[in-house]
Amino acid sequence: MGDILSNYDILGAFWVTIQLSVLSAVGALVLGTVLAVFRVSPVGVLRFLGSFYVNTVRNTPLTLLMLFSILGITYILQIPFSQEASRNAYWWAVVMLAVYHAAFVCEALRSGVNTIPAGQAEAARSIGLTFGQSLREVLLPQAFRGAVAPLGSTLIALIKNTTVAAVILGTAESAGLLAQITENEGASLPTFFIFALGFVILTLPLGVGITSVSRRLAVKR
């Protein structure tokens, strides 16, 4: 057991997991918000693009997206992030995690928008706010507050889904390292528990925090 802890950089692997999570969460939040705006916009083409994106990406396995980023985009289309294979895989993993979870963020936000009574948008328009101002000042702030819980679930799913990046990242992140340790040292329950514990430490406080934030921010009507 001690051998495993000293021979393998488990903390380092979890550090990569955290980096992947944070970077792709930011990306997913930004892209997902843009998509949600598309999906509620009065312009038909944008609504179509938004729902096309969500339906396509949400229904594609993440593993497939990961493999596509390397085999398809890097090798066949020749669009690498970096000449160095590990750097390239790292950034493609971030992008694909963001792209994939943006679809879920979009739907979480859209469900948040749906909790807002129609009168809020009408009141915003009637005092002369433009569509963009109505979104920024009235609709999105309420949508985010109403969507904290589903956004939190998406974030937790994202953290765990970073393990899928192992298919292109190899042993750099936690799931890849677990596979390597198992391969070299044989399967052992303590090894599994160490990695499981790592994820519990990352996600459990987050879940508790989200519940309390969503209670505090809930818009009272």
């Binding site: 809020q120 009408e122 009637s126 002369g128 706010l129």
Partner: peptide
Amino acid sequence: LAALRADVGMVFQSFNLFAHKTILENVTLG
């Protein structure tokens, strides 16, 4: 149209105050 609406006040049956803003912020937003 937004500019024109700014000149036309509207009061609704269901009030429609911005639920996430204070009373003061509701009045100062426009």
